[in-house]
């Protein structure tokens, strides 16, 4: 099973995702803003195979967080799914521009999340995406676990 980092400022949403994903056997780590997510990934080395990232958060929003992760070789290839309450095609496009691998609109059902997480973990990051500019030896932490 995989290590999943959930980043959302709404604690109930975090719990909801954690309950669903832990019931599936995943390990879930929760932080409440983008800056904390960057710290967890870059400084604390929290083992992570997939990030679920909310769009609108205090301190550092989802898009900025995603760009920050993509700009660092350690997390450039890490799969990121964005969550947003704004839920429009344009928001999805903006999320993709920021380097996200997928986009889940709120309100989502826990079953949706489960399905999307399975798909994202199976797919991994395909070569030729944003990660292609990153040297193979510089992929994210525990990148090897994700296959």
């Amino acid at each position: 099973m995989a290590n999943i980092l959930v980043v959302d400022d709404d604690e109930d949403i975090c719990d909801l995702i954690r309950l669903k994903l832990t019931s599936m056997g995943h390990d879930v780590h929760v932080v409440h803003d983008g800056a904390a997510a960057v710290t967890a990934l870059h400084d604390q080395g929290v083992p992570t195979d997939l990030v679920l990232l909310d769009g609108m958060m205090p301190v550092m929003d989802g898009e900025t967080t995603c760009r920050t992760l993509r700009a660092d070789p350690r997390t450039a290839g890490l799969p990121v799914l964005m969550l947003s309450a704004r839920g429009t095609p344009q928001d999805a496009l903006r999320g993709r521009d920021a380097g996200a691998d997928g986009y889940i609109m709120k309100p989502f059902s826990p079953r949706d999340i489960a399905a999307q997480v399975v798909l994202a973990l199976e797919r991994g990051r395909t070569p030729g995406g944003t990660a292609s500019a990153v040297p193979a030896e510089a992929t994210g932490p525990r990148a090897g676990d994700r296959r």
């Binding site: 709404d10 059902s109 826990p110």
Partner: peptide, 17 residues
């Protein structure tokens, strides 16, 4: 509308659980 979506996510999501 946007603000309502977040609690609705919880209501529907927890309902599903």
């Amino acid at each position: 509308s946007h603000e309502l979506r977040t609690p609705l996510t919880s209501i529907l999501g927890y309902g599903e659980l």
